[in-house]
C-alpha cells in the first residue's frame, strides 16, 4: 500500500494471492462461527428466516393457487371442487316457460288470457286442457278458422310451429301451458309429440276446429 492513489488507476495491485484466498475461505467454510452467550446467533436467525419463509410461502400458495387449476387466471376466483356444487334441477315446466315466452306469449299473453276478440285464452281453456293429441296437432301445424273457447267465438289463424320447435320444446311448452294459471291437465312427453309428428308426416295444411274435435275422443 505504498503507492500513491494514482498508481492504482494505472495498475491495480492485488492484496491477496489466488491460492491463499482459496485456502483461507476453505478454512472458513469448515469453521464454526464465533459464539456469543453460548449460541451462535446468526445461524439461528437464518434458520428462523428460512422456516418462516417456507411457512408463509406455503400459506400464500394455498390461498392464491386455487388448487393449481389450469383454467383459473384470477386469485380471487372461487372455483368449487368438481362435484361440490349440486346441479340445479330444471323441470320441464321451467323449460317450457322459456319456450312459451319466446314463441307463444306474443299472442296468448304472459297471463295466458289472450286478447279478447283476437286471440283465444289458454288459462282455463277447455282446449288447452283437452286431449293431448289435439294440442300437439295445433302446435305442430297451426289452426285456421273459427273456434269457440270458454264460450267465446274467435276467428283468426295460428302459425305452424312444427318446423321451428323441436319435440322436447313443444312438449315442455305444452306441459307449462297445461299446468300454469290454474290449469290442471297432464304433462306432455317429447315421445308423444314425436309420435304425433310421425303420424302427420306429409300433411302441411293447418287444422280447423271441426277436424280437431273428431280426434282424441
Amino acid at each position: 500500500m505504498s503507492q500513491k492513489p494514482d498508481n492504482h488507476f494505472k495498475v491495480e495491485q492485488a492484496a491477496a494471492s489466488d491460492d491463499s484466498i482459496q485456502q483461507v475461505h476453505a478454512q472458513l467454510l469448515g469453521q464454526k462461527p464465533e459464539k456469543k452467550d453460548g449460541y451462535p446467533m446468526l445461524p439461528l436467525v437464518f434458520l428462523g428466516v428460512m422456516c418462516s419463509a417456507v411457512f408463509f410461502g406455503s400459506i400464500y400458495m394455498a390461498h392464491n393457487s386455487v388448487r393449481f387449476d389450469p383454467l383459473v387466471v384470477n386469485e380471487h376466483a372461487k372455483r368449487e371442487k368438481p362435484g361440490a356444487v349440486k346441479v340445479a334441477a330444471v323441470s320441464p315446466h321451467d323449460l317450457g316457460k322459456r319456450v312459451f315466452k319466446n314463441t307463444c306469449m306474443a299472442c296468448h299473453q304472459e297471463n295466458g288470457l289472450g286478447v279478447p276478440g283476437a286471440f283465444p285464452p289458454l288459462a282455463g281453456s277447455e282446449w288447452a286442457q283437452g286431449p293431448e293429441d289435439r294440442v300437439i296437432r295445433i302446435v305442430l301445424l297451426g289452426l285456421n278458422g273459427p273456434i269457440t273457447v270458454k264460450g267465446q267465438e274467435y276467428n283468426s289463424a295460428m302459425a305452424s310451429l312444427g318446423g321451428v320447435l323441436k319435440d322436447d320444446q313443444i312438449a315442455n311448452a305444452l306441459t307449462y301451458v297445461r299446468s300454469e294459471w290454474g290449469n290442471t291437465a297432464s304433462a306432455v312427453t317429447p315421445e308423444a309429440v314425436a309420435k304425433v309428428r310421425a303420424e302427420l308426416a306429409g300433411r302441411t295444411a293447418p287444422w280447423t276446429a271441426a277436424e280437431l274435435l273428431k280426434i282424441g275422443n
Binding site: F46, V49, M50, A53, F56, G57, Y60, M61, N64, S65, V66, F68, D69, P70, L71, V72, V73, N74, E75, A77
Partner: peptide, 25 residues
Amino acid sequence: GAPVPVWIPSLGIVANMMLVLPLVI
C-alpha cells in the same frame, strides 16, 4: 395479472420472496 393459470404468478411471487434470504446473506 396476466391471463395465465394463477398458480404460476403465485409460485413466482413466493419464489421471489424466498430470495430475501440469499439477498440478506
